[in-house]
Design a protein around this nucleic acid. Structure first.
Lengths: 234, 234
DNA sequence: TCAGTGAATATGTATGCACATAAAAAGTCA
DNA sequence: TGACTTTTTATGTGCATACATATTCACTGA
């Protein structure tokens, strides 16, 4: 316990700056003092202030531009981080027995709506896989997945009976970039059937598109019955 | 163009490490070399490697513990960042005319389901506000909001006719912590009525809970008709 | 054998310095 | 005036070094 009273950690600087923003010492759109001046005021080096600033910038609270200086963001956004685990682990974390079932599987060229998601100009050979994840033998999530056979040729030889495509891909084909979309849809046709939902029932739809650099990996539309919830935190 | 060929930026180190993880040079669960060794191998300082590592850790690709070393995460998660703008700006960004309407407004103690969201043990005085956001005069989002009057006493004097509670709060009551939840629900009762949706229609439900330190600020349940979409990226 | 203690070690943080880079501001010249 | 160039400036990055801190691991003693 050396009690470094005069020594502020970068987190302290960050917290103090954040507090000043929250309490409107620095108002929306305001320009903050230069790093160097703040460093002098805080009694630390510019490096330390810089780290605090970088963190606040990544949190979406401020905006920094070279020479332009640092400004409190004028139009605040709610920024949160989303962690989506492998479905099997999610089910098991809830204390349920996990299982899954492949419902349909066929290789075919990517149809227009899949090409659009990947921003492709020409169709590519893909594997379409419809699978159901179950928790305690009750339908949990239905996924309608397209896997690029050019990027993932191995999947042609896998039947995904033991391991789900969800888990296999996350474990064997890490992506460099992912895009997620959330929406709601009414259950209909096969989707309602497999999920055991009434026709027209509200479903949460999650789309996930992943790339390895510029190559498509997979595009999934996941359908979860009412009650399913996705969480995110700041 | 000084071409600092022998000088690797921390982003280059990060990208190289990420590539090694993606190409399974370092497998899932593997222990990575020590920062110092990597620094020597890359011909840079430990500081630079450390920054690369920090970034990969925040991206959820690796896990670092003091003395324990750095490991490739064994159970990969899909991590993405969500940016939710002020609803008015979202509507206007889509090229629509924005308007909003307060539907209901009354002060009352927080009911059990609101207390549960804030993890409160005793009820607090709150303002309940039901409002509709419109895009080109068509229902866009219906929000059912609870505002803590202890934390935000000013709202008692506001009628939110000019500025929506959504925008007022984001601009005047920045939060320290936020929690988001997404789900689907069937439209019913007043919600269906105000959104102009058929009874039973699928809605996207977004819950947002914000705190200022340990004090509740607001809890909102937002209902969006089918077609509304939320996006996140890595 | 096993619990407790202490040394070794890998990551975390801070400092001081130097230079890179982008953008604004000032200066220049037709 | 107005287009162009140069200088200034605030942030971005890298290096060398020292110390902090949390675990692990080996050692110790009952």
């Amino acid at each position: 316990m050396t009690a470094p009273a005069s020594r502020l950690a970068w987190t302290d600087v960050r917290d103090e700056l954040r507090a000043r923003i929250l309490t409107r010492v620095y108002k929306l759109g305001d320009k903050l003092p230069r790093d160097a001046d703040l460093a002098a005021a805080f009694g630390c080096t510019r490096t330390t202030v810089h780290r605090a600033m970088t963190d606040l910038a990544s949190a979406g609270l401020i905006e920094r531009v070279r020479k332009g200086g640092t400004h409190v963001k004028a139009d605040p956004v709610t920024r949160a981080t989303l962690d989506i685990p492998i479905t099997r682990l999610e089910v098991q974390a809830a204390g349920c027995a996990y299982s899954h079932r492949v419902i349909d599987r066929k290789a075919c060229p990517s149809p227009p709506h899949v090409m659009a998601r990947f921003a492709l100009t020409a169709p590519r050979a893909m594997l379409r896989l419809v699978a159901l994840h179950l928790a305690d033998d009750r339908p949990y999530i239905l996924e309608d997945r397209w896997i690029d056979l050019g990027t993932c040729p191995e999947v042609a030889d896998l039947d995904f009976a033991q391991i789900s495509a969800n888990e296999w891909l996350v474990r064997h084909k890490p992506y460099a970039r992912v895009e997620l979309r959330f929406g709601a849809a009414a259950a209909q046709g096969d989707i309602a059937l497999h999920l055991g939902a009434a026709k027209g029932a509200a479903l949460l739809v999650m789309e996930r598109i992943t790339w390895d650099a510029e190559n498509p990996i997979t595009f999934v539309q996941s359908y979860a019955p009412q009650g399913y919830e996705i969480r995110a935190q700041s």
